[in-house]
Structure formats: C-alpha cells, structure tokens
Simulated assay, not measured.
Amino acid sequence: MSHERLTTVLLGAGKSGKLYYEALRKSQLCELVAVISSNGRSARALGEESSHAAVGAGGDWLAYSPDLVVVASPHSYHGAQVAKSLDAGAHVIVDKPAAMNFNQLAKLVDAAANAVGSLYCGFTQRCNDGMTACRHAIRPRFRELRRIMIDQTLRRDDVYYDGWKGSVAMAGGGVLLNQAIHALDLVSYLTDAPVVFRQVDLLRERKPGIETTVRASYAAGGLVPISLSATTDAARELRQEILFEYNDRTKVIVLGSEHPSWKPAAPGDETAARRELEAEPDAYGPSHDNLVSDVAMAILSSGQSRYKLELESCLTAHTAVYQTKGDTLCRSSL
C-alpha cells in the first residue's frame, strides 16, 4: 500500500455509485483506478469524465490490486463482493445495508474478523460536523431522554426509481432497508446506545419484501422508547425528522436525510426551530465526501474512523431492521 494514496476500485455506477465517484475524485487520499458495473454501460458513462479510471463490466476487480474497494452496487451483490474483497486483503467501504439479512451479515462479520483489511459501512448521515456536535450534546443527557420519534414521510414513485435504483426490484428491499436503517443508525450513533427492536405496529408491502409503510417500536439502550413512522407512499415528501424529547420537555430536533442539521428547542419553540432547520441545505454529496475522507485517513493512519464507521459500530441498525422484517436472528454473536 502507498503511504500517500490508496489505490481504489469502485463497484457500482448508479446514483449511489456516482456520489462515491465524485467523492473519490475529490479525495487527495484515494487514487481511483477503476469503475466497474454489471453491464459496463453506467461505468463507461462515469469513466468518460475521468481519464485515469478504467471501466469494465463485471470481471475481476481485484486484478487492479486495490488497497480500497468501494461497494455501491445493488444490495443483493454486497455480501459476495465484500467477502471477496476482504479475502483478497483489501479494505472495504460498503454502502448500506451491508447485507440483506442476518445470514449474510453473519458471514460478513466472520470475514471481517479474519481479514487484514477493515470493513466500513456507508452510513452517510453520521458524516458531518453537525452530527458530531449533536452527539456531544445528546450523549451526556441520555438518561434524561423521555422518548425519541422518527418520522420519514417520503414519496418513492417510478420516477424516483428510474433515477436512483433503476427499478423497485433493483432497490433491494423497501422503506426499511433503504431509508429507515439510516435513521435507526443515526439514533444509535447520536445516543451511543444500541437500538433494540420491540414490535411492529403496521407493515404494508408493495410486494413481498418491499415495504412501503412501517410503524414500529424500538428502545435506545433498551431504555428510551423509539417510535418509527416511515412511508414511501406520501403525496408530498417531507424532510426526515428525528425528535429527541427530554423529561423536562426540552427537545433536540434533527432534520434532513442527506446532510442533516440539528437544533435544541425549548418547550413551545419547536415550530420556530423547524423553520430554521428547513432553511439549512440538505444536499447530496458533502456527507459522501466526509465519509471517504474519514475512512481513508483511518486506513492510512492505522487508526479508527472519526464517525465510527467500522462494521462493529454499525450492526445495531441492521439487526433492528432485520427483526422488523421478521428475519430470525441466526447467531447470538451479532
């Protein structure tokens, strides 16, 4: 491995792949040498913008001897691509979810435990300075929390899937694996506590395995109640909101799903706080830039990532989502 830059391969060139592609192009710590997609067309479209990146359809990405592999392919490909890359000694960033179910995740836990390289999860909502400051504000008052409420009022029509995942089938799950997992992970990160599944109150599916509406209950650290209300069938999309309410009725509001912002609110001041937060940008891109930079610095310094993106710090949201979907825990070690 070079001590200055990481030789990097990107797997996947859809919308998620494009975000990682732009982040890798900007990075001073990564040298992007190849972009690979299943049919090669989307990779070639990206490769035309960068003379130093090769493109390809499938094939053996390990032929490029990468220090780092970024997996931004469809969810169903993640498990095999991550395991193969770790087995070859590479470090890996995998876009969330790392795996589709408990059995796949268990295999990745084993692979990561025995690997030379490290495995990092692409929970980009963690990756901004605002969320770091929010974490410092929430953690000392964790035992004062009365409840946590997550609201994801989203619209995911065919136009969305055409531009993001290509089709509903290619999305790899519904609102749980695609959206709710981000919010549950962010709650776990901000509270520094595992999210524990309690019960499902409502689950509607577009087709088996693709949920459109979910209402479920969890607990942070097994103590603080969490309510999740998530839908992709809304007539109008709103920003994701996570509300932390304390026993004294003061609150912390976290708004946004790409580059979230936060603000404390005294009782009665919630509406004004939301208006201020809605004026903040929630753009794609900056959080991916921060994630790539954070992981690259952790690898090159042989240290830990600032945003705690290592697999062992990202298991709780996966576990909670799988249980909400009715997937049975296959191993107590997860």
Score class of each variant (00 low, 15 high):
8 T>Y: 02
8 T>N: 06
11 L>V: 12
13 A>Q: 07
14 G>S: 15
20 Y>T: 11
20 Y>L: 08
25 R>H: 10
26 K>G: 09
30 C>F: 03
32 L>T: 14
35 V>M: 05
36 I>G: 03
39 N>K: 14
43 A>M: 11
45 A>K: 13
46 L>R: 12
47 G>A: 13
53 A>I: 07
55 V>N: 07
61 W>M: 03
61 W>A: 07
61 W>H: 07
64 Y>G: 00
64 Y>S: 08
66 P>R: 14
66 P>H: 08
68 L>F: 10
69 V>R: 09
77 Y>F: 11
78 H>M: 02
86 L>G: 03
87 D>L: 15
91 H>Y: 07
92 V>I: 05
95 D>W: 01
97 P>D: 14
98 A>I: 06
98 A>C: 08
98 A>W: 05
99 A>E: 14
99 A>I: 04
100 M>L: 09
101 N>R: 13
106 A>I: 10
107 K>T: 12
112 A>E: 08
113 A>L: 08
115 A>I: 06
116 V>D: 01
118 S>L: 01
119 L>D: 01
122 G>T: 09
122 G>W: 03
127 C>R: 02
127 C>F: 13
133 A>K: 10
136 H>C: 04
137 A>Y: 04
142 F>Q: 08
142 F>C: 08
142 F>Y: 14
152 Q>G: 04
154 L>S: 06
155 R>F: 03
155 R>C: 13
157 D>A: 08
157 D>F: 01
159 V>R: 00
159 V>A: 11
161 Y>C: 02
162 D>W: 04
169 A>N: 10
171 A>V: 00
171 A>K: 00
172 G>I: 00
173 G>R: 04
174 G>E: 05
175 V>N: 04
176 L>H: 12
180 A>H: 10
180 A>C: 14
181 I>A: 13
186 L>D: 14
186 L>T: 09
187 V>D: 03
189 Y>G: 00
190 L>T: 00
203 L>E: 05
204 R>D: 13
206 R>C: 02
209 G>Q: 11
210 I>H: 04
210 I>F: 08
217 S>D: 01
220 A>D: 01
222 G>Q: 02
226 I>Q: 05
226 I>H: 05
227 S>A: 09
227 S>I: 02
229 S>M: 04
232 T>P: 05
234 A>D: 01
236 R>E: 11
237 E>L: 08
242 I>Q: 04
247 N>K: 06
249 R>E: 01
251 K>T: 12
253 I>S: 02
260 P>W: 12
263 K>H: 06
275 R>D: 10
275 R>F: 11
276 E>L: 15
277 L>Y: 04
277 L>H: 06
278 E>Y: 09
279 A>R: 15
279 A>D: 13
282 D>A: 01
282 D>V: 00
282 D>N: 13
284 Y>E: 07
285 G>K: 11
285 G>Y: 11
286 P>S: 10
291 L>A: 13
295 V>R: 10
295 V>Q: 07
296 A>N: 04
296 A>M: 03
302 S>H: 13
303 G>D: 02
303 G>F: 00
304 Q>W: 00
307 Y>A: 01
308 K>L: 13
311 L>G: 11
312 E>L: 05
323 Q>M: 15
327 D>M: 15
328 T>A: 14
329 L>M: 15
329 L>A: 15
331 R>L: 04
331 R>A: 05
332 S>F: 14
332 S>W: 12
333 S>Y: 12
334 L>P: 15
